[in-house]
Design a protein around this nucleic acid. Structure first.
Length: 551
RNA sequence: UGGGGGAUCGUCUAACGGUAGGACCGCGGACUCUGACUCCGCUAGUCUAGGUUCGAAUCCUAGUCCCCCAGCCA
């Protein structure tokens, strides 16, 4: 093995393209990402995008963005726009190669007539129900339509009249004439054109008949000279039809379809139908709700595109159905953000403390490191004063053994500031701790004790007088079980606590955070400034927490 | 009882007849001005039964289990 040898790609798709190129079956690779513009892209699409654009990039080819817009009743311009924005956000570029299946409606129509002329397609007058019944079942063969033997002339005439708009929706369809007894049901004279008196977002009212997926996809691939048509496993059964059409039409190229398993993730639903439902029924606030697995939602939550792509890559590409642990996603996000995100201090659930021996009215600025993983990120000043906020979780009046934080009589470090000792917990009438009286050791300024004494905990804090208030949205999984919908409707598995809102106290610098910027709140997690008015942060992902886990 | 596909640590994934490896999770430990990060270590797998072979996750045979397909959706 030579040292020059490229690292093995490790998945069958890259290997396939590599060998097709090496063995001269193609000069260069052309792939395509072909979404239907009927919803927002989600993390499952990120996998398809990674595969198609990733292969093109890896092997010096190109990837087309093609909208599979053959069903005008479901599609909208809003989705066309959002899909382009999302693909760009992931960092991919289709150059001049933006296409629409609707670009090919004229050609597809001509090819449909071509099929009719070859005696390979016919107009069927049966109702949808009748067609369904005569299609047979999984185990019983279908039976021929009474209209199957129509002459070429009659079929041509009827099909042209379908196109002219002489018939209402559902009155007739065009079917490929293949084999009503085929084991593969897709070959039992599949419908390839249907009457749809509907306005198309791009072709307007030019058409009232539309090709369906099977009659558009492979031909579109061929027209664009796509070499590798990569799709998910459920289209496996369509491949014989895909190839039958290419073999029987005057197409300029013969793309090859190869399937891979789609992405599934625990605690996550990746079905457009359900996601649409959650938006429509207001279980979430919109397509870009940070709890949604949509690219728009993940972006708003603060997930960097590079982390998302890394996750998709780590999850792997294979032909076996699988469900990836959401923990793998969190790990990818944390790994990226740990290196990239600047650190700040923020207190989510404030508990006021008063440093009794710190002079009233006095204040100072302490130097804090912006990112220990990145010295170039520099330092900043954080204001300190007599009254501070610490996290409620960081104090316990009667601590258990392994509690290292503050409790009456213990000493801890305030990060970048001083060692403090808790002297007294002040309670309200109900017995709740509402304030802590503490003292500090002036000799420990900056966080180190000259006498070398150690503390077990370092805590984050915010100066009460300087703190800025912010709404912080803490997101939890949208579902309460790893396999939402396994018992039926995923709506039943929706997590009622998927969003928790707290009013937090932040160090003042955070008021300048840019919308969309993800930062670390030390000891808490990664948070992203939201686009909503005011100072609002979304929790992207929490930090790993060995202490919480031990509880 | 039709057709198509799939089965490797708990999860995801490598291996292309020649040492079953990696990642995530979990569990220890070291380090630490984030109970984070980092580092070290541990745990743990070829669906079953036969066969071929010097040698099988890989090839053969027979099973088992799982997924997809009966839209005028994609």
């Amino acid at each position: 093995m030579s040292e020059e040898a490229a690292a093995p790609v490790g998945n069958f798709l890259w290997s396939l393209v590599e060998s097709d190129l090496a063995e001269g079956r193609h000069k260069s690779v052309i792939t395509r990402f072909p979404p239907e513009p009927n919803g927002y892209l989600h993390i499952g699409h990120a996998k398809a995008i990674y595969i198609n654009f990733g292969i093109a990039k890896e092997f010096g080819g190109r990837c087309h963005l093609r909208f599979d817009d053959t069903n005008p009743v479901k599609e909208e311009q809003e989705y066309i726009d959002s899909i382009q924005a999302d693909v760009r956000w992931l960092g991919f570029d289709w150059g001049d190669h933006l296409y629409y299946a609707s670009d090919y409606f004229d050609t597809l129509y001509v090819w449909a007539e071509h099929l009719i002329e070859k005696g390979l397609a016919y107009v069927d007058d049966q109702t949808a129900d009748a067609i369904r019944i005569s299609r047979g079942t999984l185990t019983a063969p279908g039976t021929n339509s009474p209209f199957r033997a129509r002459s070429v002339e009659e079929n041509l005439d009827l099909f042209r009249r379908m196109r002219k708009g002489e018939f209402p929706n559902g009155a007739r369809v065009l079917r490929a004439k293949i084999d009503m007894t085929a084991g593969n049901i897709n070959l039992r004279d599949p419908v390839i054109y249907r009457i749809l008196h509907a306005h198309h977002q791009r072709t307007g009212d030019a058409w009232c008949i539309y090709p369906n997926y099977d009659f558009a996809h492979g031909q579109s691939d061929a027209i664009e000279h796509v070499t590798h048509s990569l799709c998910s496993l459920e289209f496996e059964d369509h491949k014989p039809l895909y190839e039958w059409l290419l073999a029987n039409l005057p197409v300029p190229a013969f793309p090859k379809q190869t399937e891979f398993a789609r992405l599934n993730i625990t605690y996550t639903i990746l079905s457009k139908r359900h996601l649409t439902q959650f938006v429509r029924d207001k279980h979430v606030k919109g397509w870009d709700d940070p709890r949604m697995p949509t690219l728009a939602g993940l972006r708003r939550r603060g997930v960097p595109p590079a982390a998302l792509l890394d996750f998709v890559k780590r999850a792997g590409i294979a032909r076996a159905n699988s469900v990836v642990d959401i923990a793998m996603f969190d790990a990818a996000v944390r790994e990226y953000l740990n290196k990239a995100a600047p650190r700040y201090m923020a207190v989510l659930r404030p508990l006021k403390i008063v440093i009794e021996n710190y002079p009233e009215g006095q204040g100072e600025e302490l130097e804090a490191v912006n990112n220990p993983e990145d010295p170039a990120a520099g330092t900043r000043k954080v204001p300190f004063s007599r009254e501070l906020y610490i996290e409620q979780d960081d104090f316990m009046e009667n601590p258990p053994k392994k509690f290292f934080r503050l409790s009456p009589g213990t000493e801890v470090r305030l990060r970048y500031a001083y060692f403090i000792t808790c002297r007294e917990a002040v309670k309200d009438a109900a017995g709740n701790v509402i304030e802590l009286r503490c003292t500090y050791d002036p000799a420990t300024k900056g966080g180190n004790a000259p006498d070398g004494r150690k503390v077990k905990a370092t805590m984050h804090w915010v100066s009460a007088a300087h703190a800025v208030k912010a709404e912080v949205r803490l997101y939890n999984p949208l579902f309460t079980r790893p396999d939402p919908g396994a018992d039926g409707d995923p709506v039943q598995d929706l997590n009622p606590n998927s969003l928790e809102i707290v009013e937090a106290k932040l160090e003042p610098e955070l008021a300048n955070a840019k919308v969309g910027e993800t930062v670390q709140f030390e000891r808490l997690g990664y948070f992203c400034r939201d686009s909503d008015a005011g100072l609002v942060f979304n929790r992207t992902v929490g930090l790993r927490d060995a202490y919480a886990k031990a509880q």
